[in-house]
Design a protein around this nucleic acid. Structure first.
Lengths: 234, 234
DNA sequence: GCCAGTCTTTACAACATCTTGATACGTCTT
DNA sequence: AAGACGTATCAAGATGTTGTAAAGACTGGC
């Protein structure tokens, strides 16, 4: 039952990094370390860790942008570890999508306990989202927010990308107009079905070989749309 | 929009209780207070809160037993609030099933942020029940809204699907014309039996091997229709 | 202030679905 | 066997939904 228990450590202080690494491997976790924001985001996509430990004080940019970026495609628990004890820092980090916030110095037992809490939460979630989706001639990379078709980069507008992301991440399931509108436009516009239609047409135009008879971005008459990764087998 | 946002506060210090109550109601939450462990467990079951705030120092027993008890049947997030700052206390509470641990005194903004985190977690614990119906050559997947027959995807119109769903979910029971009309067309059309017949014919045409002598979508003369998953044993 | 890119809004054609009525079929009663 | 009643089938027209293009409104960058 050796489930994946890889933990990504994003921390620039070498001493602290060593400490975490020793502590975690000593408790049966696999670790993976990077020392800056850019590599952190990359590794979050590539290594598919079950938990991320994130230091806020990184050399190349705010740690908060790391959380925000990761949350665009993944629900992996992020535990922030920071020297800053200001309440505002905590609130901002948590609202950006972090799941917990520990202030240095912290006890190693508490860290381990909070990691166990985070692991409990993962357990109850569905399938872990992939950072990269490949099918047919297409590639979507959520971590970079890029889409290719036949090796050519396809430019999508923010709205188009958001819709595509929504549909792809619910692969196979029908999303109602209402759901899509709520997610993309917010609660105030849940009756403007034509918004979705127009942008859907744009998406098909950019991505489908034959937009009039789409293979992947399918219409569900009277209900909404569905992304179908491949013809569904029962 | 008034979704259930009831928070159960288990706290014996009256002053702190008042503070939490005012803070939370002021931010749009509904609250519900008890002052001891016994009532806490009772209310956790009765009031069905989305979050529980728990003080560890209760008069009638350890707060930890409250968490343990609640975890026997519920996954509702429990945020512990305690005066004790010992690492061991934190670890024990978290391992008993608590989701977060705040030490008094704490900032109100931090509390609210951590409550938002807890709410996010509830949101994603969607229902992982696979709503799937299989019999003979048929498969219905309610979660995907797809129907197969002999491995072939069958396309159903919204009305057809709605009727099928209704009949299948009441497997074995007779549904009157009136009931079907009410569910599918609404209260205004409960005397147009004709609607049901026409769509029923369509359904049989798409799903039955021999629509004239249906095996599953059965007619109950003078009453309505019935879906029979398998031939009933005597 | 202009420009380019994007989003909103509109209008209409194309299409799918639903309704409706005519007719055929089946079964039960007398 | 004939009639009465409920049901099945069919297809044309009405209705509703979706696709598409294109024009106007908005936005941020320069």
């Amino acid at each position: 039952m050796t489930m994946a228990r890889k933990i990504l450590i994003i921390e620039d202080d070498v001493q602290m990094q060593r400490f975490l690494q020793v502590l975690l491997t000593g408790h049966g976790y696999e670790t993976c370390c990077v020392t800056n924001a850019r590599d952190g985001i990359l590794m979050a996509a590539e290594a598919e860790p079950v938990i991320i430990l994130l230091d806020l004080g990184l050399p190349d940019g705010d740690g908060l942008t790391v959380v925000t970026k990761i949350r665009e495609w993944s629900e992996v628990p992020v535990v922030v570890i920071s020297a800053r004890d200001q309440e505002n820092d905590k609130v901002r980090a948590l609202d950006c999508g972090a799941d917990d916030y520990l202030t240095k110095p912290f006890g190693s037992k508490e860290l381990l306990a909070r990691i166990r809490v985070a692991l409990r939460h993962v357990k109850f979630q569905g399938q872990p989202q992939k950072a990269r989706f490949e099918w047919g001639d297409w590639i979507i990379d959520f971590s970079q927010r890029l889409v290719w078709r036949r090796g050519e980069l396809v430019h999508l507008t923010p709205t188009e990308y958001r819709i595509l992301q929504l549909l792809v991440s619910h692969n196979g399931k029908v999303l109602t107009y209402r759901q899509i509108l709520k997610e993309v436009w917010g609660n105030a516009h849940t009756d403007q079905n034509h918004y979705v239609r127009v942008h859907m047409a744009q998406l098909r135009h950019k991505l489908e070989d034959n937009p009039a008879q789409p293979r992947y971005l399918l219409t569900e008459m009277g209900i909404g749309y569905r992304f179908q990764f491949e013809t569904p087998e029962p």
